[in-house]
Design a protein around this nucleic acid. Structure first.
Lengths: 214, 214
DNA sequence: AAAATAAAACACTAAAAAGTGTCTTAATTT
DNA sequence: AAATTAAGACACTTTTTAGTGTTTTATTTT
């Protein structure tokens, strides 16, 4: 007969798997992906590396499972959605500034985003796709109809702004702190970036409004 | 007496150093930094790795010398500068779109920029600083005076746009090709991004103009 | 409570990568 | 042209990292 997996207080497969997954996060945060070696992960988890092979098949699969276990984008979409009678202007602004704060505070998301620029990997494709699907809601449902003929232009603008948010957050604190003279490590600097994001959205909507009134 | 370094056709220190430096570029382009191991570099250069220790001290110093040898930003500032009687509007647009094209085409610059997000390293600090100094010209000489009280806001906007340019170019072709539905691998997509960059600059200048006329 | 088995430690082998010692010879110096 | 020395090849050692076989014992099953 099939035997239950051990779930005791000393030997416990599920708990150990969790420990490995947590260890990936810890190592990623403390050492970056350079540290994501099987020996390091096992040492961090405090369990023999052989279990990584047994439970996941190897480091790669463990890492994939870690990435998939992190629902990075779920927190981005959260929050109360304001009334939409402005073509999504306020929602766009909120979405960008929230995204800035969220990425700024989530060191591991930064690492994952960075990783997505470095290496082809199915789980990273998945993350990228999730972000894309997630954003598609705002774009196709709200802003595309509003911007009509300029919908693609608005999308391009959003692509630039969101990318900028990502890059600036990954940039700070590694080899430099300032970008175009803005100190990204200071609150004043990040406020300026967020204000600039809002300002740009306002300008784009303002422009669209005046075109509509022609 | 001090002896000249050998400069023959078979044994030639300077030429070999060049070969190593070139090899770093080649490996970076073909394999990314994962491939930047002393054995790989030496094999690519076709010279024994011991020479890397002799000439540079080790892989790290060789890589630093490679990074420093590449004057990545020199090509960005190049090109005819248009007349400036518009507060730098045309120059800003040109600078952004040129920068987009330049980064898009320069795979190794992308790798270096990416590297700069990953690892603290003096030569990477230097690159970041060079970019900053380089951009400071346009900002402090031309746009700061024009935007006066809004100068910092304009800087923040530029920071976002330039960062966006970097990120989007690094993003494409690894784990995804589209961002906000824009296909960055197609010319249509990159044209849309460049148009969006120009559009945003126009909007910002337009806004500044109308504020001045109050 | 005894038997069976999964969880995990321990100790090992294998592979990859870094780093070094020695010898050969091309190029320079005398 | 002989002597000297730097350039580089070659073979080696060391270190790091990945991967596996064996044993112990906690937990489950009978």
């Amino acid at each position: 007969m099939e035997r239950k997996p051990a779930a005791g207080s000393i030997r416990n497969k599920e708990r150990s798997k969790e420990k490995f997954l947590d260890a990936v996060g810890t190592v990623l945060e403390t050492e970056g992906f350079a540290g994501l070696k099987i020996n390091t992960i096992a040492a961090t988890a405090g369990i023999d590396k052989k279990m990584i092979y047994n439970y996941f098949g190897g480091t790669d699969q463990l890492i994939d499972e870690y990435i998939n276990s992190q629902d990075f984008w779920s927190n981005v979409k959260g929050g109360e959605i304001p009334e939409i009678n402005d073509g999504g202007q306020e929602l766009s602004k909120l979405s960008l500034t929230q995204q800035f704060d969220y990425v700024a505070q989530n060191k591991n998301l930064q690492k994952i985003l960075l990783w997505g620029l470095m290496e082809e990997r199915s789980s990273l494709k998945h993350i990228a796709n999730e972000r894309e699907v997630n954003g598609e809601l705002l774009l196709s449902q709200i802003t595309d109809p509003y911007f009509a003929g300029n919908a693609t232009q608005f999308r391009a603008i959003m692509a630039i702004l969101i990318s900028g948010i990502y890059y600036l957050n990954m940039y700070k604190g590694i080899n430099a702190d300032t970008f175009c003279g803005i100190d990204l490590t200071k609150q004043q600097g990040t406020d300026e970036i967020k204000n600039a994001l809002s300002k740009l959205i306002d300008l784009v909507y303002q422009d669209q409004n005046s075109n509509q009134n022609l």
